[in-house]
Design a binder for these strands. Structure first.
Lengths: 233, 233, 233, 233
DNA sequence: GATGAATGAGCGTTCATTCAT
DNA sequence: TATGAATGAACGCTCATTCAT
């Protein structure tokens, strides 16, 4: 996202200290953020519905009730829209997972709850965001792929840390050199594909809650198995 | 794929009975198949390297050492290229998995071996095909998505059947109404994301074998867990 | 200019040997050249009339009775159109000047005749080409400037050689280290500005012949003066 | 240039009589002029470096440390910027030439000195201004072309008058009906192209002084020749 | 069957200009 | 006066697809 010709990160949109700027500057700041969000929101729903390539910049501007130029004032190009979008979605998802995890004392139970939160909170409330991160942003040029990798890396790290914190309480650690990372990647893989499968292919939102329970049970089993292997050796 | 103006399925390319056609008809048939494969192969490596949208039909024709018109003679449009491609890849993958499974008497061991085969045979030997099914064909319009769904459905069914055959020998079945399908989807999700992560993001082909072992161990653990839940109830 | 995706020089358009290609290949070749010329001709008159920046590619395609895509098939972009145009014009001008010069035995008289030819043949018959080289191609990005420099360098070299050949007959040479080049550059500067002034600003085509005579007289005087300085030392 | 919504000529910027305005009005007047000059100066260096079309209004405002709106307050549009710029440059050049000419008693020697001044003072000290008048303002729409014509007309007139005044002392005049104007145009053509050639193409600033001497020698020779023709007839 | 030149709708992007604050 | 966010028409260019030869 560009502000005054310079690109700033999505997180920078939140003003640092509000006492260092005048009343009008603050209002302008607020309006800028509002318009950014409006554009991203318009783009998000269009990308999710019609696909990234099928959505023209004019359509986005129309939906956001702005001119094309305005969109380009806030984002340097179409790809930038997608990059910012998945960055925001990544942050949201991490927050949802972290909240659920912490709420249960960073335990194995918290880990389970985070899994439930993915399906119950994230997927059910934001199916469009699911479409963006898991469908529309796939295979879209280096910039987007780079950001995707970044997001997934962060998620992996989060999961990994959570797993360690939770497992420490159980007094176990991981056997294989790769086990921890593989678990982490596998878990996200399960979340991704299960969400994709039931949201986009079966369009079965009703049972997603139960499906999520099963998926999480599967995951916990897998983890235990690797723990078990460790314990036996 | 079109032959004589009519679209035929990839599997139809193989002639039914060779005694019903003349010597020259057979030669023509052989040449047709050869050109088809040449085109798909050219497109596959270009899609994998440069991306589906970054690859023009002219580039494909160039690489296949044909004219653009020739490509359109064999495939009705660019999307059709992708559809046929992922169909072939789907078939190949199913064959690889089935072979490994059957070789060990359709048992839980066979199930494990099929997992190993995914990483050792499929991913390592055909990284470009991995790029096509798991990256380039994602989010590309209804026709492709339809075919993707079809492929994944078949794979899910294969895995499901295998799982049942293998588990029958162990004398267990699945508790939850969704458990079986969720396992199936989860397994493929793990395969997909683990392959993607280590092939495209970490570019760690060397340790893929060990990674595959871990992933499969994780999967078996997950399965056992759901079995266990079942047994307990 | 591009043929078969590869850029070829304008001079390459002329087929090297006509016995190495089939009847139909020759016809295609002829048609290609014809379309190239049609496009350049359309673009030339539009650039000359409306200006390079005021002329869109669609207008050019319209005037050439082709689609925009066709124009882009023959020329890689708008700038390429201008580059090829001024290259052709440069060649034409050199031919006109050389013909006039040689016709009079490469003497001082031939030199004078070349000057007359610039005004009588080039300016009067091709005022649009004058507009292109001396007006529309000025200040238009590095590629065009590069080609302009190339053309003027060639013209300078031609004039220089002509001057030497003619002056050898008179038994003189140039005094200052820079004199020869300065003369050369000055002569072209005179031709350029005089043509520009009377063609575009005074729109006085009628008296251009007499004007040319005066300009050439001025040039010859300048040359003699530098010669004279030489002789005196 | 606009002041209070009305466009005034660059020369009008200089206040007529300072006793007719208050202290604060004078300060405002001074600031206005300062900002005008700042903008023109910023635009000049950007046009010269990046080209007229490659330079956006925002860049100019940035360089002048103002807002885009401020630029539009002082100049009615981008073209107006260029028009004022070349007008100022034209005035400067005329002043430089006139000063040199007068300093030597409006003689043939003064004429020569004016030529030297063009290269030594104008070209060497203001290469950016050379780029503007001789490169960036060429072929840029009717308003600019009109002003260019106006400037060159004035210069031609100056040269013409100077030539007459100088030649009267030598007791000669011009033969052909067009001779005087042709000489005038030719001289400026030589100055223009020689400056362009060595400043932008050969980037040879070091020898520009000597080059100027040669160019002027060439010019004087040309003049003498036309004089001579006159004398003989 | 094979060719490759031709099509043209559609796209992403720019940028001079305006105007509410 | 000064600001800078907003406008939107216009542009250059791409590329999947067609079709005469």
């Amino acid at each position: 996202m560009k502000i005054n010709g310079k690109r700033i990160m999505a997180s920078n949109r939140i003003k640092k200290n509000n006492d260092s700027m005048s009343r009008s500057a603050m209002r302008r700041q607020r309006e800028r953020e509002y318009r950014c969000r409006t554009i991203l929101s318009a783009a998000e729903s269009l990308f999710a519905r019609d696909g990234y390539h099928q959505t023209g910049m004019e359509k986005i501007a129309d939906k956001a009730e702005m001119s094309v130029g305005a969109v380009y004032f806030y984002f340097k190009n179409k790809e930038d829209l997608l990059v910012n979008m998945i960055e925001d979605i990544g942050d949201l998802l991490r927050r949802i997972l972290a909240d659920a995890f912490e709420r249960y004392g960073a335990s194995m139970e918290g880990f389970k709850q985070a899994g439930y939160a993915f399906f119950d909170d994230f997927c059910i409330n934001y199916p469009e965001k699911v479409a963006i991160v898991f469908r529309e942003s796939v295979g879209q040029g280096p910039e987007v792929e780079e950001k995707r990798k970044e997001i997934f890396d962060k998620l992996n790290r989060d999961v990994s840390i959570a797993l360690h914190r939770a497992s420490e309480k159980e007094g176990v650690d991981f056997s294989s050199r790769y086990a921890a990372e593989v678990i982490t990647v596998s878990i996200l893989g399960i979340y991704e594909r299960v969400a994709y499968h039931y949201l986009f292919w079966k369009r079965d939102t009703e049972n997603l809650k139960q499906i999520g329970r099963d998926a999480v049970a599967f995951i916990l089993g897998g983890i235990n198995n690797l723990f078990g292997e460790n314990r036996c050796s």
